[in-house]
Computed example of a mutant assay.
Amino acid sequence: MDTFPLIGGRYQQKGGPARGAMGDVWTVEDTKLGRTVALKFLARRRLAQQGALTEFVDSTVKMFEREGLAMARINHPHVAHIYDTGEHDGELYIVMEYVEGKSLAEHLKTGATLALEPAVRWTRQICEGLEAAHKAKVLHRDIKPDNIMITQERDVKIVDFGLAFLADVTQSQTTAGTPLYKAPERWSGEQGSLRSDLYSVGCVLYEMLTGRPPFGSPGDDVMAVGRMHQENTPAPPSAHRPGVPPQLDSIVQMLLAKDPARRPKSAQTVADTVRGVQHVLDAAGLAGAAEEADQLETSATDAGLSGSIRALDRRIFDLERRFGPRDQAVIDARGKHAELTGQSGDARGAVALYNRLGHDCQDFFGPYDVRALSAFEGVARWIAEAGKK
């Protein structure tokens, strides 16, 4: 028998919460619709504990409720849906789509450089989701890898619009948001605009391409990071990662412009530009990879190499879930994925994928197993290929 009381008369808690800076997140069962959802309690009491006036607290609650209603109108595949809002025991909550998968932050923590294909594809999907939000007059204000979920289908879901809004009203203007991804104008006390969200996308793209944010690192002095955003110009991604197409360098440069007016006018503009880069990546490697692509046991639906790589990515995830990471079908698919990544023009990405595969095979089968040695041969081959460019 369930021991937790229903929240809002319909949501049954399924376990303990995950604690976050702005409140607690529960996995709950919607007893009316019979589905699992995410329920996030928001920290209204924190406002009062910080000494905010009652009028300000009430105003903040109304603003949050309006934003929740706006988000509920958004129906886009790359934005986690908001289903409901309410109040329970004096605390506000929102009910959101439960997203199975890992955050982009978790993907970046593996230590290996993200291949170009998913970096480009996920950037496009982030921008498409933001365009839908911006059309509904909703800003995110805290785009960062932790707020970008990668689903089991290897697609983007943007989360935590409402929590990002609350962060702005429970913190000072100079500390609201996440410092590593926060636009220069917001460090000056401005609330920001849709182009502030795009600046944060530029920071995330930079990290996907290079393995590091453009300014600072976790643990750095917050105000020092703020000055970097306002005053410094980062090296282009290709300076850290040879082989990054010049088109991506240009996109990053536009997104990270200090003056918001010099950034792209909309998220859709960025999505369209990034889609063009996907076509460039396809064209760069299509001829050399045609024979290999024909042999892949995938069901890619997108044109060119990007579709084949994406289908392999999904296939690997499915095989690992069904048979475990040691299965030979998984090892073979990962090798094909690394090879096709290199043939798409991303030699550095192929090196990273082969290197990770080699170390995994050593852990699974022993240091001298032929599968590990074969993977490291792929590392050497694609390092040599990268040196030719």
Rank of each mutant, 00 (worst) to 15 (best):
I158V: 14
D197S: 08
V156A: 02
K388Y: 08
F161S: 01
T341S: 09
P118V: 07
E117C: 06
L281S: 01
L180W: 07
E377N: 13
E207Q: 14
P245K: 13
A18Q: 14
A293C: 01
S308N: 11
M22A: 11
D155P: 00
P245L: 12
A38F: 02
A257N: 09
V28M: 11
P242L: 07
T60G: 14
G8F: 04
W187N: 09
I126A: 01
G34Y: 06
M223K: 05
Y181T: 02
Q278P: 06
W382D: 00
G307W: 02
E231V: 13
M228E: 12
A18H: 11
L312P: 12
I383S: 14
D197Y: 04
I158L: 15
L163W: 00
G324N: 03
H134R: 01
A289E: 05
T85Q: 15
P179M: 07
D363F: 08
T233Q: 07
M1F: 11
Y181I: 05
S238M: 02
A112T: 08
Y206N: 11
V222R: 14
R322Y: 06
L205Q: 10
Y181F: 13
A386T: 08
N75R: 15
D294A: 08
T85I: 15
L166I: 09
P145V: 10
P367H: 05
L286G: 01
